[in-house]
Design a protein around this nucleic acid. Structure first.
Lengths: 244, 244
DNA sequence: GCTCTTTGTGATTTTGCTGTGATATAATGA
DNA sequence: TCATTATATCACAGCAAAATCACAAAGAGC
């Protein structure tokens, strides 16, 4: 049975985290990392989140956050943009596979787009209502648990092997899904063909560079069948990336 | 529902993008070389940087710095301009491929421009707030890790083979990118045509002096398509350099 | 058995990259 | 000044990479 500890707290508080019993094991509430240099707001957030049952850890500087993340993996990150030493914008692209909700005082439209493209899952402008924050946290955690991956108007579902394009669902084959997942995990960076082959070789051992292209073409065709848009871009001599 | 493992497990190391990954996978914090003849300021800097987790080495004279640089390659250099024997201004053009942040008591505007054109990545005027310095260090290290190269309003990206001109992104071919990188690495110095050919010969073995000119022309055209400006200057009989 | 889906491969078309000849423009030096 | 040489651009051709079509082999489900 897996057993977890809250980071930054002593063991006497542990039991508070374990009120959700499921199956024959302990179900643990998600952990949230707050990255904010303002101690007042941070305390407020921590109290709210702990009252809601989440495990909470704190970082006040970007470098602290990196240190924590090198040791522990929270289920969600609340990231303030204004940070000393290493700003939130710089920190954001370093975080992978963890949903990040960006909190900032002023986010204009282009900034929002940049953030979402840069890897943020959601954003919320300060000051905000705590209930709204809790709702957004729940949404992100739910997506994470269901292994959903979103980029622009595409949402990839793990359990059904499908993508939603503008609320129309498309069925993918196992390899198509694996490839699209690789591309959507890092929408900005192109993924090399050999790198792709390695990563999906577990499922498809004899997939060659030749057949990979065919799969890409098939994915394109399926996505284009909805609104005619091409979501995949070739980087000559390198590989593929999502169109941004 | 997701079952998660113990929080303290180190599996999360995989999930972060450690751009500082060196050698065979050990994560090391960046090394910074401090070049300053003032022992008091130097000590203060060293303490601050080591507290922030960086590795630090010191040089008190320009000649010392050269000796150190011939043996080891730091990830960033903090350079004081007022140095005995070999001044910072003289030292600066000798440093290649390492971001340099210049620290100086008085930098007027023209001086700032000269420094940046001459190869400094950033400058900071003494006295300065340590947090500001740490922030600027983080910015430079991050750019270095991501293989970004900036000159005026151009930013060159390695992974996508693109340049950003005033926030509009332009795609380059492999050779165009290699050439522009050579030019932007030290924008003041003209690069000879034969020297260019040698350095990009790995990618393009049969690129001749004749075709090199064509590539230059193509780069110019692509850059001009944004704002009509010509960023490349020909030095008669020598080669090319960036327009400053 | 049959059908449908998935997946890899050959063949072909399309696209983009790169080098070269021809020609025009600009710089240098006597 | 003119002659010479270097530089700039156009247009095009050869080639390599990418995209698509059509089809066959291998499984899955009935």
């Amino acid at each position: 049975m897996k057993w977890k500890s809250r980071f930054g707290s002593n063991s006497s508080l542990l039991l508070l985290n374990f009120h959700h019993l499921k199956g024959d094991g302990f179900y643990t509430m998600p952990d949230i990392l707050i990255i904010d240099d303002d101690p007042y707001i941070g305390d407020l957030l921590q109290e709210t989140l702990e009252n809601a049952g989440y495990g909470v850890s704190r970082a006040f500087k970007g470098t602290d956050a990196l240190k924590i993340l090198s040791k522990e993996k929270p289920d969600l990150i609340l990231l303030d943009l204004m940070l000393p030493e290493l700003s939130g914008e710089e920190l954001l692209p370093m975080i992978r596979d963890i949903p990040v909700i960006v909190m900032s005082a002023k986010i204009d439209v282009s900034n929002k787009v940049d953030l979402l493209l840069g890897g943020a899952s959601d954003y919320i402008t300060k000051p905000f209502d705590m209930r709204e924050l809790l709702a957004r946290i729940a949404v992100q955690l739910r997506k994470n648990e269901k292994n959903e991956l979103t980029f622009r108007d595409l949402t990839l579902y793990a359990d059904t092997l499908t993508v939603k394009v503008n609320s129309t669902e498309i069925r993918l084959t196992r390899t198509e899904w694996a490839i699209l997942k690789l591309l959507m995990q890092d929408p900005l960076k192109p993924v090399g063909k050999t790198a792709m082959l390695e990563k999906i070789s577990a499922d498809t051992p004899d997939c060659t560079e030749r057949s990979l292209k065919q799969h890409i073409s098939n994915i394109r065709k399926k996505l284009q069948s909805v609104n005619g848009e091409d979501y995949i871009e070739a980087v000559y001599g390198i590989g593929f990336k999502m169109k941004s």
